[in-house]
Simulated scan of single mutants.
Amino acid sequence: MSTNYAFIGAGNMAKAMIGGILSSGLAAPDCVTASNPSAPKLDALKEEFGIRTIQQGNAKAAAQADVLVLSVKPYLYETVIAEIRDVVKPETIVVMIAAGQTLSANETRFGKPVKLVRVMPNTPALVGEAMSAVCFNANITPEDRTIVMAMLNSFGKAEEVPEKLMDAVTGVSGSSPAYVYMFIEAMADAAVLHGMPRKQAYTFAAQSVLGSAKMVLETGMHPGELKDNVCSPGGTTIEAVASLEASGLRSAVIDAIDTCVKKSQEMSK
């Protein structure tokens, strides 16, 4: 039997997830439904993917879902759950993708036994390269886990973590694309300073970051070892590395992620 997926909210993350589900063959377009107040957003999803759409139809979408993704802003969770809790089936898997939304808080909002999954994806989902962390409540079965992990891996990579690490995940992957974009921009600025055209500089910088990340993931080597392999004695790279160390690159990154994690912890209270 086909799995029916429903999305409440039709923003960029919902679009990325829908694209992954369809391109991986997990579901056909007629098994995916999106509900949203905005008709233009729904029309765009319908035109691109051929899915079913419902304007202002959260309860209807929730009632027919086997997997229900709450793709709305954190402050809307209380309102949306109040709207759908009476129609969500006991066997429906409810996936939450908003920062700061804990399993226990939303179990209380449903006011009945519910299968809840908390996910922290990131924006590279839009190009099929998300890094998603996931944790499950006690009602999730092994079969449910398989369904959820297949969905998450359809638009990137996913790993299960204990819920207590979700704030750390926010710092190291949820928010980190912004740090990486700043690094790419800075590298490109330096290349422009030395005469390279801006567009070409972004290509060189971005592709170098992409390739370096693949080296870490695919070789399994420690990043420090990979760095050492590029640093020839007395060469150009070790001069640059020494300059970065003198400027406090490592401590700046650690401080930034620490600040991000602490903000996430405040939001989760």
Results as ranks from 00 to 15, higher is better:
E239Q: 13
A240H: 02
V88M: 12
I147C: 10
P90T: 04
F155M: 13
A62M: 09
C231Q: 09
S175F: 03
V32F: 02
C31L: 08
A133C: 13
N139E: 11
G211N: 05
C260D: 08
K41G: 11
R250I: 14
S243T: 15
E245M: 15
M215P: 01
P223T: 03
A213H: 00
G57M: 00
S2Y: 01
A16I: 05
C260F: 04
D258T: 14
L165P: 02
V67N: 03
E163K: 03
V67A: 04
T203V: 15
G174H: 04
E48S: 12
S232E: 02
E239V: 01
I81N: 10
S232H: 06
I93H: 07
A16F: 13
A62I: 14
S23F: 00
K60P: 02
N36W: 10
H194E: 14
F155T: 08
A188R: 00
T259Y: 01
T170K: 03
V80T: 00
I147G: 07
G220Y: 04
I81T: 05
C135H: 02
R145S: 05
P29N: 06
M96D: 14
G211M: 01
I21V: 12
A138H: 15
L26Y: 04
I51S: 05
G19Q: 13
E225Y: 09
